[in-house]
């Protein structure tokens, strides 16, 4: 009978359409400031200084006024990712680079309305407004990209 066939096709269609995908967060929600270590090398041919990646033999990093280490005596490091504060507009880190200690202060704004999805919620993104250092190891710091969000890129370059 025609009506029966109609209902069967409908039931099949609804079954196919009811297969829901799972609803866990699959997007990147890690917001970290990426710091690269750099050095300037003299190109003997042209006589021009060029930027080169610097590999740190031993690196320990922790937040200022914090006890837990973010990097603990890590070897052969050229790039690190650091968490900025979401309830404060200044974040400070203590770096120990090959037994030289530097404190770096980052001034930043916090945007708590960066929405990813219902499953992932919001993340707090930052805009780096300024950097200062005690300059024992690092002689200059460049803000390569001031926008810190869930997209991976180099934000800060520390030069030795």
């Amino acid at each position: 009978m025609k009506l029966n066939r109609l209902i069967n096709i409908f039931l099949l269609a609804s079954f196919l359409l009811s297969c829901n995908s799972s609803e866990e967060c699959r997007e990147e929600t890690d917001v970290k400031m990426t710091v690269d270590f750099m050095t300037r090398t003299l190109d003997t041919k042209s006589g021009i200084y060029k930027n080169a990646v610097l590999i740190i033999d031993s690196l320990t990093v922790k937040g200022l006024d914090s006890d837990s280490l973010i990097y603990n005596n890590s070897k052969k490091v050229k790039s690190i990712a650091l968490p900025l504060r979401i309830g404060n507009t200044e974040t400070a880190f203590e770096f120990r680079i090959n037994n030289i200690t530097d404190t770096l202060y980052f001034q930043h704004s916090n945007n708590d309305q960066y929405f990813i999805s219902l499953e992932c919620g919001c993340v707090v993104t930052h805009e780096i407004l300024g950097v200062s250092t005690t300059a024992h190891f690092s002689d200059s710091i460049i803000i390569n990209n001031k926008d810190v969000n869930n997209i991976e890129t180099t934000h800060i370059q520390i030069f030795n």
């Binding site: 968490p83 979401i86 309830g87 974040t91 919001c122």
Partner: peptide, 9 residues
Amino acid sequence: NVTQDYWNE
């Protein structure tokens, strides 16, 4: 909710 685990915020 947004949580920053390291800074405990």
